[in-house]
């Protein structure tokens, strides 16, 4: 059924599908991180969307050094040195609207976000683990952290949406009559590269395999002598990296908006559950599917674009009704 829909969409709504693929690749990055946390730690991480926004703003700070000042609409520069001060960092590369500085900022933001998530695990989730709290307590704690993260972003950068650059974005023409923004091509390429890196980490390295093993069977992982706390820290670090890249790419595609984090939760969870919780490949395709369906559905005349993220909910409910273990099988 989904396949039929996709085929029809490709024929009939090609532009929407292209946008859907771009947005889907961003969702996929977020969903892979979400599904890993879900799989290894067994709880729904409600701070995932807000972590995405935090890392996007973190990259913004590194690029511009700007935070909102004492009055709304007035900004203050707080960083004496920013990534943009590197020679040529802001010169636009090829047809993109940004220079290599964005990549540097994205990488640094990934490090920072990974660090933050690992520290939050140490401070909060590990203590809950030691007390053997139920999964719901973890989720409530993550919701509390989500609220805290969002208000922190609002405090530091204010409620007005921002952008990385204000340069005009250039189109490029691809074969098959497809026109796409150069930036969107970058988003797609970056998302796929990072997913491949994550895949290599998960399937080719010992720690990555240990993460999958823990998602499969935490007690057996413990019995086998796997150092579970180390694996958990790595899971957060990897999720942080994925979250940061997804956040920056999202801000590039749309904009920096503190409110976006919570709204993103639905598509992210829809993607993760669609792909089967704990299944990283599934989450990737789940993200793509959700992204495409969202983009195509809003082109329907009878639906207001305001329902964009509600589409994810409908997908979610359908999946829960028909195949609660997801299209690609859960790993729980």
């Amino acid at each position: 059924m989904i396949l039929l829909f996709l085929i029809w969409a490709v024929i009939d709504r090609r532009d929407a599908v292209v946008i859907g693929v771009v947005e889907g690749s961003i969702l996929a990055l977020g969903a892979v991180g979400l599904t890993l946390v879900y799989g290894v730690l067994k709880f729904a991480h409600f701070a995932h969307g807000d972590s995405m926004m935090l890392s996007a703003y973190c990259a913004f700070l590194l690029l511009s050094g700007v935070v909102s000042g004492s009055r709304p609409g007035v900004d203050a520069e707080v960083l004496p040195i920013t990534v943009s001060d590197l020679p040529g960092a802001t010169t636009e590369v090829w047809k993109f609207s940004f220079g290599y500085g964005l990549l540097v900022a994205m990488a640094l933001s990934a490090l920072v976000t990974s660090g933050i998530l690992v520290v939050l695990d140490r401070l909060v989730y590990r203590r809950l683990r030691q007390r053997k709290s139920g999964i719901v307590i973890f989720s409530i704690a993550s919701l509390g952290l989500a609220i805290a993260i969002r208000s922190l972003v609002l405090m530091v950068w204010g409620p007005t949406p921002r952008k990385y650059t204000t340069t005009v974005r250039e189109n490029i023409d691809l074969p098959f009559d497809i026109t796409i923004l150069a930036d969107q091509l970058f988003i797609l390429a970056a998302a796929i590269t990072v997913t491949v890196l994550a895949y290599i980490l998960l399937f080719r390295t010992k720690l990555g395999k240990a993460m999958r093993a823990m998602a499969d069977n935490p007690e057996l992982a413990l019995i086998s002598g796997i150092r579970t706390e180390l694996v958990i820290a790595l899971t957060w670090a990897l999720a942080g990296g994925l979250v940061a890249v997804a956040g920056v790419l999202l801000a590039l595609q749309a904009q920096l908006d503190p409110q976006l984090g919570f709204v993103l939760l639905l598509p992210l969870f829809a993607a993760a559950i669609l792909g089967g919780v704990g299944n990283p490949q599934g989450a990737f395709f789940g993200g793509m599917i959700v992204g495409i369906v969202q983009a195509v559905v809003v082109t329907f005349d009878f639906l207001s674009p305001g329902y964009k993220f509600s589409v994810a909910f409908v997908i979610l409910i359908l999946i829960l009704l028909i195949r609660p273990r997801g299209l690609f099988g859960a790993r729980l």
Binding site: K209, A210, A213, D216, E219, L220, S224, G225, I226, R227
Partner: peptide, 23 residues
């Protein structure tokens, strides 16, 4: 070796053994 749930079902046989030698 526990009685049930004593393998990692989504890992390959080789990976299961690698996990047995994690340390």
């Amino acid at each position: 070796v526990p009685q049930v749930e004593n393998v990692f079902p989504s890992l390959t046989i080789q990976e299961n053994l690698e996990m047995g030698a994690f340390i």
